[in-house]
Amino acid sequence: MNRTRAVLRKTAWSFFTIVFVVVLNFFLFRVLPGDPARAGIRDPRLNKDAIEVIRVRFGLDKPIINCFDSLNPVKVGNCAVNPLETQFFIYAKNLIQGELGISYHANRPVVDILGERLWNTILLIGVGQILSIILGAAFGVFAAWKARTSLEYTAVGISLVAWSLPTFWLAILLLFWGSTMGLPVAGKATPGMSSLPLLQQWGDIAKHMLLPTLTYTIIYMGEYTLIMRSSLLDVLSEDYILSARAKGLNTVQILRDHALKNAMLPLVTVIAINLGFTVAGVIQIESVFSWPGLGSAIYEAVIRRDFPVLQGAFLLIAITVILANLLADLTYTYLDPRVTVD
């Protein structure tokens, strides 16, 4: 019962955080300078009326909230306007209906753009995370098990170097290398493959994924190795490991049945928190390899100052990270019988 209440509290807190992010997300993008109606475009063909039309189309002619027509520069407006006619309420209303507005740049609903890109990113992050977790955990286990040997020093050294690499730099070097190896250097698939058998399409995608996934794996593997190693070192000096040895279990049995699960626990939290940090890495990897995912959408939106897309992506990512953290908390509860969520 206690646990149920705790879970409810956590969930409620996550919900509150989401609301906070939603509000922040709105105002953040309203305090920007410049006129979004002309974002990144300078065209002598665009006259004053045309600009006004664009502003109306994106709802920028309405007051931001009551009393404020604009926040940058701050323009005090009429406080008596109908609150439902303000940008904030329109934003909130649209959000509830699952709408994130229209991209300044692409004349498409942001939801469509993000939806199209999301799956590609999930694919990249998914495979990359799985590989880096598996490899990182394996190296970490290895390093901890062979503590105080040159094997450990090598594993730790490599991990530290991997951790120190700027993501985009590694991506560029790998792109350079990959292109000399004849690997595809851009995109998710060779265009025009849609008529081919499914397996062949997958193979093509896998080939395109190779370089971005490799970059991702190298960048995050190091961190997981270090965490796994230190966590496992802690576990392995616990008394119950000695008990297990006294019981006559061999090394493999001890690692598998007694050490790994306990040592994985800190990793669960880190993976969830990492999801937030991953965003920065994914932006770099996707834009170097032209991977059509959320990251490159954000990169383009940054370059074009396409705020609705940026705003939508920001919201999507923040909510995902919040939910992932909640999930990690709950998983932790499930995995570790000692924890009764505080």
Partner: peptide
């Protein structure tokens, strides 16, 4: 019969692509 325009966000990749015949 067909023309395919492929997007490369990275211009260096574009150069590599024409070099390698992609």
């Amino acid at each position: 019969d067909e023309v395919i325009f492929q997007t490369f966000e990275n211009q260096d990749a574009l150069v590599q692509a024409i070099r390698t015949g992609q």
